[in-house]
């Protein structure tokens, strides 16, 4: 199959994590991964970001598929259940708000800048080497540390489920994917008309009976 430019976006995802090791301010670029899928879903009504442009998904597919780091087993039923997907989205958004709150505390001078990256919302790792002084306001750096924590945490979770289950198992419970699918559902008013081919196809009638 012919490769397109967007099939190489996994390099950008890797580069993003790599740059964050040297200068935390690069973490701000991660907002692109946050807003692009939302804009595509709201304006275009599709999950084109997940389907084509998600570098993280491509990275998992490469690592688990071509390099064989995945067991390629079926995920447990709960992982794809609505309560887990929506629950994880709620948890993820809550932690995102906590991160924004911490940024505000630094902005208002209540708290000092914490030069740490928090993995899995629990483990604080020193990351001071990636902060190079006061060229920017402390809250700008605080947001960068927080956002990088989110990105690194989701990558670790994705790698974990990639190894255990299928390469792109992360896509099943990815909060951005869940959110964009919800937006697409809302846009179509939960009333998706199946294509004529699907409606009239005798095979699907057989298999769904």
């Amino acid at each position: 199959m012919k490769k397109r430019w967007y099939d190489y976006l996994w390099i950008v995802s890797l580069l993003y994590l790599f740059l964050g090791l040297f200068n935390i301010l690069f973490a701000w670029l991660g907002l692109l991964c946050f807003f692009t899928p939302l804009i595509i879903a709201v304006v275009g009504g599709s999950k084109a970001y997940c389907n084509r442009y998600c570098g993280r998904g491509q990275f998992f597919a490469l690592l688990g598929g071509r390099f064989g780091f995945s067991r390629k087993k079926d995920p447990p039923r709960f992982l794809k259940s609505r309560w887990f997907r929506y629950g994880f989205l709620t948890f993820f958004l809550t932690m995102f708000i906590v991160m924004l709150w911490n940024t505000w505390l630094v902005l208002s001078g209540i708290r000092e800048l914490s030069k740490t990256v928090t993995l899995l919302w629990t483990f604080r790792l020193p990351w001071h080497w990636a902060y190079h002084g006061s060229a920017v306001a402390p809250w700008v750096a605080q947001f960068a540390f927080g956002f990088y924590s989110v990105m690194l945490t989701s990558t670790i979770l994705g790698i974990f489920t990639m190894v255990l289950f299928k390469p792109r198992s992360w896509c099943v419970y990815c909060p951005m994917g869940t959110m964009t699918q919800l937006i697409c559902k809302a846009r179509s008013g939960n009333n998706v008309s199946l294509s004529q081919n699907y409606k009239e196809n005798p095979y699907i009638m057989q298999s769904e009976q």
């Binding site: 199959m1 879903a41 009504g45 599709s46 999950k47 084109a48 997940c50 389907n51 084509r52 998904g57 597919a61 794809k80 259940s81 997907r85 792109r168 896509c171 099943v172 994917g177 869940t178 964009t180 699918q181 937006i183 697409c184 559902k185 846009r187 179509s188 998706v192 199946l194 294509s195 081919n197 699907y198 196809n201 095979y203 699907i204």
Partner: peptide, 29 residues
Amino acid sequence: YCVACGCCVKVCPKSAVHIVKGIFAEVDF
């Protein structure tokens, strides 16, 4: 339970799968 991630679309050698409105995948029989 389809999450409309599009993994199936990418691997189909006959381009028989597409995502319907970002909600689920559909196979052209």
